[in-house]
Amino acid sequence: MKRTTRSWRDREDLRGLALISPTVLYALALLLVPVAMVILYSFWKQSFMTIDHTFRLSNYEAAFTQPIYRALFLRSLWISLTVSLVTVVMAYPVAWYISFHGGRNKNLWLFVITVPFLTSYLLRVMAWKVVLGHNGVVNSALMWLGLIHQPIEALLYTANSVVITLVHSWVAFAILPIFVSMEKIDRSLVEAGRDLGDSAFRSFRRIVLPLSLPGVISAFVIVMIPTIGDYVTPTLVGGRDGMMIANIIQTNFGQAQNWPMGAALSVSAMVLVSLAAGIMVLLLRLLVNGVRR
């Protein structure tokens, strides 16, 4: 066989690279460079107004040993895990209902779900203050019903209020990927399951659930990753008990003027959330594999 030299234009792979290169460059400039800078900073040290550029691990040491940071990491992980779990569990039936029983109104349903997002994020968080506050909707309603005699203080400015608010903010983003993965399931697969003897529930468990798993996983990741870095919600409804790691990162980059410490905390948060998300994905897979027998 004779090898002929060909111009790069003929090479499928090179042509592909050339075509995506604007996107790649854009992504490099806007994603990789900032991340690289944060990583660099995390190995330096702030000494008063200047930055000491010698390589050191002291920031990471502090991030993992100081009790305040450790407590915040654990709480952030816990909150983002809880938020993603609750969100996915709440979103799944909604997505299932729209996909399998939405009939010709599917688009209307999806629109209705996104309506709250026409208002600003801040407004939606503030609205929860009204709902959960001392004299808020929940407390007033419970008092009026006579179920309680004084307002429940634990509703607002706690980790719970952060979870509730975040779930509400993210649930639509979880419904969409789950819905999409369900839409892709060929309905004749479900019918084949029924035809082979499955009850409606069994065919759901053995066919719909495993085949919608990719959507569940994306929903989980889509919710978990941003929530761990959220600082608006904890600032507004979190109080002291609802503070998260992002709040302290923000402080380091802001008032405290300790960018290297902030950077080290950011990188640690990134690694932790990736690990946690990875573990959750594996667990979900195992769970679904176990249940579809």
Partner: peptide, 13 residues
């Protein structure tokens, strides 16, 4: 009864 579907409906997973 059992059916062979027009699209075969083989479970992809």
């Amino acid at each position: 009864t059992n059916m062979v579907f027009q699209s075969y409906a083989i479970f992809p997973h």
